[in-house]
């Protein structure tokens, strides 16, 4: 019996969240007294996992450069069966949430997404999950033997642990082509909200798309991703993939800076998992000040350029 972690890759390299997912799997496997092994596709970036306690790593070469949903599902299901795994650990990325339910069903397992802690295993298996877009948590008892866990972003910190990790390579045979990915358009040169440690976000207080240089410039000095409130993408000032909140993207960055955003309940719910929230708003009564960590009452057009300048000075002096 063992715990299997699914490690995601991009352009042949492990994705940034690999250490969180691996550490989660290792911690859970210790609790269950079993070993923790890993699976990935199309990579030779195999050294890193031995720093996080994984003992076996199997890499499948799919012979196809895009995310290949149904083939990945088949391979992972077979692998789970062959290795008598009880638990599969995945992340909360778009790709993991795509294949999670498919694997759970095919493998006859339970799918538990948005898990925020190591499960308790005293009597029954109980997972803590965030629900109602971070407005609450639920504790779910699971009666199935097999479980697919989707670990919520940034809810488990990596733990370094050296291990002897055996790496094996395999090739995919008989690829099924039911879902054919024709092409991928990547937003190049832009940090994505899902991956960024820092997110700088703008709302209606910025008055118009022509003023977005404030958000972009601040994001650039901080190495941050840019985001926006819902009306901004509805009006077409920014593209939909930047819309964060309950009906947009969730944010779980280390730092979230909200500029000219009032802090509506739907917005705040979506960013609740960010560690530190800074709000810049000219209205001292803006609801966002109730849920932020640090607040500045001031005009964005005045405060943001000053902040950019200070950060630049700070960067060049350090």
């Amino acid at each position: 019996m063992s715990v299997l972690v699914f490690i995601e890759t991009e352009n042949g390299l492990l994705k940034k969240n690999f250490s969180q997912i691996a550490s989660y799997g290792v911690a859970l496997s210790k609790k269950l007294g079993v070993k923790c092994i890993a699976i990935a596709f199309n990579t030779d970036d195999c050294e890193k996992l031995s720093e996080f306690g994984i003992t076996e790593f199997t890499v499948f070469n799919s012979g196809h450069k895009f995310f290949d949903c149904l083939n990945y599902v088949n391979i992972i299901c077979n692998f789970l069966l062959e290795n008598h795994c009880k638990i599969l650990v995945t992340s909360s990325s778009a790709d993991s949430k795509y294949i999670g339910p498919l694997i759970a069903n095919k493998w006859d397992g339970h799918y538990a997404p948005n898990v925020v802690e190591i499960p308790s295993t005293d009597k029954n298996f109980v997972v803590k999950q965030s629900c109602y877009t971070n407005k609450a948590f639920s504790y779910t008892e699971i009666y199935k033997e097999r479980i697919v866990i989707g670990v919520s972003n940034n809810s488990f910190m990596p733990v370094k642990e050296k291990s002897d990790c055996k790496v094996k390579f395999e090739n995919l045979k008989d690829r099924i082509k039911t879902i054919e990915v024709l092409s991928v358009d990547k937003f190049t040169g832009r940090k994505t909200i899902a991956d960024a440690d820092i997110v700088v976000s703008g709302g209606r207080g910025l008055k118009g798309p022509e003023n977005w240089y404030l958000i972009e410039d601040l994001a650039e000095v901080l190495g941050a991703a840019t985001a926006c409130s819902k009306p901004i993408s509805d009006m077409g000032w920014r593209t939909h993939d930047e819309h964060v909140g309950q009906t947009g993207k969730p944010v779980s960055s280390k730092l979230y800076i909200a500029i000219g955003i009032s802090g509506a309940i739907q917005h705040v719910a979506g960013i609740a998992k960010s560690k530190v929230k800074v709000v810049i708003n000219n209205d001292p009564e803006a609801p966002f000040f109730k849920s932020a960590d640090f607040g500045i009452v001031g005009d964005a057009f005045d405060v943001v350029p000053k902040l950019i300048q200070k950060l630049n000075e700070f960067k060049s002096s350090s």
């Binding site: 778009a94 790709d95 990915v181 024709l182 991928v184 358009d185 994505t192 899902a194 991956d195």
Partner: peptide
Amino acid sequence: IDGGRENI
């Protein structure tokens, strides 16, 4: 997808 779009 995270950071882009896939055409299928």
